Computed example of a mutant assay.
Amino acid sequence: MKSLQFFKAGGRLSRGGFWLHGLVVWGVLYLVWSALGSSTASALTWLVNLPALAALVLLCIRRLHDRNYSGWWLLLVAVPVAGALWLVWQLALRRGVPEGNRWGPDPLLPRGDYLVVR
């Protein structure tokens, strides 16, 4: 199994990998916030939220790469309703392009044989 990579912008991320990585980020964020309690200072809030936000943005960029879009398409989140709906459709529901693209090969294709006889 490939290791979880949260702070990487290059390459592609499959739909299942996107869901797995996203759930891990949200789960860790929830656990940290539960441990801190409700009385947190604003500086501590930034220290917790910024890495989580960076990880989620980088996951979205890699998922857009899998759909053969540039990461700049993530800026569509600024379009009130249509942009967010389009991003949910592309990121969470659609399969990546089956062939390789400029960001790498299809992450769902097998990478090689585990048993090599020479």
Rank of each mutant, 00 (worst) to 15 (best):
T45N: 15
F18L: 08
W19V: 02
E99L: 08
S38I: 14
L85N: 09
A92Q: 07
G37Q: 10
V24Q: 05
L56Q: 11
L59I: 05
V117Y: 15
P105T: 10
G11K: 01
S70C: 08
L75G: 07
H65P: 02
W26T: 14
P105G: 11
V25P: 11
V48Q: 05
R94W: 05
A43F: 07
P98K: 13
F6P: 04
F7S: 10
V32H: 06
L20W: 13
A92G: 05
P107Y: 02
P98H: 06
A84K: 11
L4H: 06
N101H: 01
L115E: 13
V77P: 07
W33C: 15
V117S: 14
A78D: 05
D66A: 01
S34I: 14
S39M: 15
V48D: 02
T45P: 13
V48Y: 04
L64I: 04
W86S: 04
L29D: 09
N101I: 00
A9D: 06
S34L: 15
R95V: 08
Y114E: 15
D66K: 00
V88C: 07
V24E: 03
A35M: 12
V28S: 06
W46M: 12
L56T: 14
G16V: 09
S34K: 15
V25T: 08
G83C: 08
K2A: 14
P51K: 12
L47E: 01
G11T: 00
S34E: 12
T45Y: 15
L20G: 04
F18Y: 07
V116K: 13
V88S: 03
G37N: 10
R111F: 11
L74P: 10
R63M: 01
D66I: 01
F6V: 09
W103T: 01
V79Y: 08
W72A: 11
P51T: 09
L44N: 10
A55M: 09
N68V: 03
G96R: 00
D66F: 00
L13D: 01
V77I: 13
G16D: 02
L85T: 06
S38F: 15
S38W: 14
F18R: 04
T40E: 12
L20S: 08
P98Q: 06
R62K: 03
V81L: 13
S14G: 11
F6E: 04
D106V: 00
W73C: 07
R67Q: 03
A82L: 14
D113I: 12
Q90L: 13
V79K: 03
W89D: 08
R95E: 11
F6G: 05
R67I: 03
P51Y: 05
S39E: 11
R102H: 03
T45D: 13
P107D: 01
W19D: 02
G96D: 00
H21D: 06
G27V: 08
T40W: 11
E99V: 06
W19A: 03
F6K: 05
V77C: 12
P80T: 09
L75I: 05
F7L: 15
A52H: 07
L87E: 04
L115R: 15
S39A: 13
L108R: 02
W33Y: 14
A9W: 09
L23C: 14
F6N: 06
L91D: 02
G37K: 12
R15T: 01
G27P: 10
R12D: 01
V97P: 00
G83T: 09
V57M: 12
R102D: 05
E99W: 05
L93N: 01
V48I: 10
S14C: 07
L31A: 10
